[in-house]
Design a protein around this nucleic acid. Structure first.
Lengths: 132, 132
DNA sequence: GACAAATGATACAATTATGGTATCATTTTA
DNA sequence: TAAAATGATACCATAATTGTATCATTTGTC
């Protein structure tokens, strides 16, 4: 029932570190040492962030990663969605099987309310607010 | 990021059905037909509920399951804990590895707040409230 | 008493999600 | 040209979830 998985967590730490580095180009090698995360795994994560246009990458010697947007404009759900897919606390466990009370299921209704609250709260957390 | 796993969900449906049956003894066979859930799996789930003293069981022909407590006194977290373990949205993904900012980690603080809210809300959901 | 219908206990298997490694190709700078 | 970086991608390991299978025991009914 974890809200945040490990790769999201690593991604957040990396983003925070890069954000604090104030424009310097950060290579994976340095980041991995700093965060004590396995370098190949971290590398994969940063590549994904790069493809998703959260980071900008520079190849070649002296290359590495930079933020592509201001840390004020990167929010938790942006990152969570990348690594964890849709943010839904509430999917009916009977996927395509028909739930007899699909429309009116009282449990779904109650959990939907909780979901809305959680998303609102998460949307208020930016990288900037984590390092501030 | 599902809040409720499949076996919890099945358990809840079963409890609701039994609660609505008003004291009648319900065998797994009937329940499985009714809920369209694989009977052996449902059986395992009910056995667990029985061991955890949510249900009472009667063996032998004509046997089955009954609620052991009033549906007003069975709450979502009771069932979730049985099938999903501790209710924590917030575990640090670096389990025993040392997180350098264990105490002050700003992300943990924010998520703790969300967790408290979610638990409060879940604690307000009883089986009775689901069938009411 | 025998049989059928139920649960108790428990071991095993399949599937999926998560976490992680390995490797080759390409780019860039010194 | 070599070294240091990312891009792309395929593969592997582990754990959690979702089940199945089986044998033992209890109990009511004929």
């Amino acid at each position: 029932m974890k809200l945040i998985t490990r790769n999201t967590d690593y991604a957040l730490r990396a983003l925070c570190f890069i954000a604090k580095s104030d424009g310097k180009i950060i290579p994976v090698s340095g980041l991995a040492r700093e965060l004590r995360v396995p370098q190949p795994f971290l590398r994969k994560i940063l590549q994904v962030l790069s493809k998703k246009r959260i980071l900008k990458s520079l190849k070649g010697q002296g290359g590495g990663f930079l933020l592509k947007r201001s840390p004020v404009k990167i929010f938790l759900p942006d990152i969570m969605r990348i690594f964890q897919g849709k943010l839904r606390l509430n999917e009916c466990s009977l996927k395509k099987l028909l739930c007899p009370e699909q429309k009116t299921c009282p449990l779904r209704k109650k959990i939907s309310g909780i979901e809305r609250y959680v998303l609102r709260e998460l949307n208020a957390i930016s990288i900037a607010s984590l390092i501030g």
